[in-house]
Design a protein around this nucleic acid. Sequence first.
DNA 1: TATAATAAAACTGTATACTGTATAAATGAT
DNA 2: ATCATTTATACAGTATACAGTTTTATTATA
Lengths: 222, 222
Amino acid sequence: MEYKFEVNANEYLPLREVVFNNLRDAILKGQLKPGERLLENHLADKLGVSRTPVREALRMLEQENLVELIPRRGAQVLDISAEDIKNILEIRKALEVVSIRHACQKMDEESLKELKAYNAEFEKAFENEDYEGVATSDEKFHDVLFRAAGNLKLVAIISNIQAQVYRYRMAYLKVYETKTAVINHHRNIIEAVEKHNEEMGEKVMAEHIEHQTQVILESLKK
Amino acid sequence: MEYKFEVNANEYLPLREVVFNNLRDAILKGQLKPGERLLENHLADKLGVSRTPVREALRMLEQENLVELIPRRGAQVLDISAEDIKNILEIRKALEVVSIRHACQKMDEESLKELKAYNAEFEKAFENEDYEGVATSDEKFHDVLFRAAGNLKLVAIISNIQAQVYRYRMAYLKVYETKTAVINHHRNIIEAVEKHNEEMGEKVMAEHIEHQTQVILESLKK
DNA sequence: TATAATAAAACTGTATACTGTATAAATGAT
DNA sequence: ATCATTTATACAGTATACAGTTTTATTATA
């Protein structure tokens, strides 16, 4: 019998996906700045591929609302206004509320443990002023809630929405007053989920997102 | 002085957009059926273009959740389960509620008139059993509400969401009991908007979408 | 007749070549 | 110098060519 390496079918990624992930990342992290033009040739050279996969990746990024394509002019990183941020966070609020309602109804012990674990991570990171850590554990915290909702479409939309305001996340967390407010929100969310108290969950989550909106919009004025 | 034809800058559409619109339409109308494979060469020949714009259009359709791309295998029209429909309509409900809250707060006279006009169209079409007409005036009715909300991101997401369940729209409207229920919903929505009664609007809209969900899921069982 | 091995065909993935249109640079007129 | 006019350049849009992989058809084998 002949042996083969067990090749994971997921191992292969088309170049367009690689390019897509690359660019997406660079945009989210702010390495590619709003308004910056994305020249196909330039990107292709830099990434060591031909224009074809770059172009396809750009079409995907357009649909994700991360870049803007102007016919015969090319792509540029989408700029986002204060109004946009308000609009996006309003949508996020509505969807997070849906998701926590479900979570309050049917979250199991396992997920609840996870939720608490990520929250511990979250608080610790805050103590250490490790904002990168705060951000990632915050994401994980919310992810548990989405997943508990058991609505995959919801997860997809929220993560798309989030990508659009990702850049402003750090500014938010670093604002001094955020810390105590957000830690409280999270604790209340856990309590609501634990007690299966939908109304409470809904209320706290709405506050949580509204607070975030306030702070981000405030910080934008400067 | 020399005259030139006033050339509208928006007149030019890249082929990928043309192909995209074409395929999108065909999928929404059910001419391309769920599960059906979309062969690049075939489509390119049929539309009289090369594979390049077809491929780019497919990437866009993937991001719109209308087709599924399997690496090295190609594209196929995305199939949708009852679960998906439930999930999607739950999201739609949340977003329509957001939008009607705004509409109740700040809809102007002009838009209100439009709303009533489309609703008259809607009721008349129902009388004439012109379901195509019912569907389009219903769309316009809801569009007025979205637009009143003044949140462009919301409009974009809802229309994407709607595209995914577009196929089931007719089955819904043709169910006998739908007629009276929906006509009532619409009338109540108008009343709520007119009286700036947010709570009422929210309640009616939620019912409206829930009803739709019920009927569609029911009709799927057959 | 089923099953495995092999060969052929059909597709997708990627690169490259070509075309036409904007944009920027260079030239010339006022 | 400033503005218009031409020319050159850079770029996106589209088509095509080729490579590699999967699927299907064909043949061989039990």
